[in-house]
Write a protein that binds this DNA or RNA. Structure first.
Lengths: 135, 135
DNA sequence: CTGACTGCAAACGTTTTGCACGGTA
DNA sequence: TACCGTGCAAAACGTTTGCAGTCAG
């Protein structure tokens, strides 16, 4: 589905600025606000920070994007995908999707609590291959 | 081990302010900066925000405290404990320790990646018992 | 054509910093 | 006593908001 369609599906107008943000996120996989600002301004030098903030917040609220809270300080954004975890390199900070079945983990965890589990957020600290070989 | 000893172990002086912060964290389990400010000022009305910030940052850096990054906005602090996950209520935001064996999950995940996994951060979205019965 | 969106500048809240004083070890 | 830690005020920072003009549908 095109980014235009995705936006329309979420009752958001397909402005060039929003499309550009989505393009950056698609290319990066996971991007910080700074990443997004830097990249979008290559194409739209006048694009304002407040527009980026507004759009990210709006798209997160509509569920089109997700915020990633990771052990390190920065906040990352990604286009919403279901049922996956992340590998975060403790050396270089790089982030990689990790396609494991979180439902299985939820099912198992559910046996240890009487609270109803709805979802799981899982990330693993790793040393990525690049950092390992660089060492 | 007393809080005085814990501080000394981390080469930090055992000031009344720091001890008070640790007491609050022990009582609360998980506390935001606001929680900590409110509680500590009951005992030390002149305690300054900057001191709280400095101490929290310092104690996190030394590994005495951990920051909890959760899906919701707020940042929580806890006294560092190994090998546990969290249950976060999506209704009321309450946080509970969840004593599952994260090593088992790490071991299993390790089979699906060639990166070396060092640690896992896991939280579950739940509806807590209180919110369920309130409903 | 109309409401949604944008850019700019100003406002806002949170976190950090500089400095002089005070307290722990 | 020496140095680490504190309180206060100001600075710095990231994020949000108000407004007038513009654009997508």
């Amino acid at each position: 589905m095109s980014h235009v369609d995705i936006l329309k599906l979420h009752t958001l107008k397909a402005t060039p600025q929003r499309l550009c943000v989505l393009d950056v996120l698609k290319n990066y996989g996971h991007a910080t606000l700074e990443d997004i600002e830097k990249q979008t301004k290559l194409k739209f030098p006048t694009l304002s920070l407040s527009t980026i903030y507004r759009n990210l917040n709006e798209m997160v609220k509509k569920g089109l994007l997700s915020e990633l809270k990771l052990a390190n300080k920065k906040e990352y954004y990604e286009i919403t995908k279901e049922n996956h975890a992340h590998l975060v390199c403790t050396k270089c900070g790089s982030i990689e999707d990790f396609l494991i079945d979180t439902n299985e983990i939820i099912k198992k965890a559910q046996m240890s609590t009487s609270n109803t589990i709805l979802d799981a957020t899982i990330s693993f600290d790793v040393i990525c291959k690049e950092c390992l070989s660089r060492k």
